[in-house]
Amino acid sequence: MRRRCEDDRESITIMVDGRPLVARAGDSVAVALGLNDILKMRSSPAAGAPRGAFCFMGVCQECAIYIDGALRQACLTRVAEGMVVELRGVP
């Protein structure tokens, strides 16, 4: 995933599984992860298969992961400085 336009927004840092990740203020968590080439966000609960963002508009729930301690949809959640993201979803 690559951004192909000018981006004047400030860079911020989020924590993803304990590692700092640079993101742009205003992006969703799903986009921030994708731009850092993190596509797999979680494993599916029944089969344990790798899953990532799919619909990017809040419908499919594939990107529901733990953000600041609660299950949230990464595609609908804006990044924030110091945000804690865990790459795990429903157990």
Binding site: P50, R51, G52, F54, C55
Partner: peptide, 14 residues
Amino acid sequence: TLPGVIGLAGATTL
């Protein structure tokens, strides 16, 4: 279901 497969509509959003 593989990461990297996304919806067409999702692609338009990006």
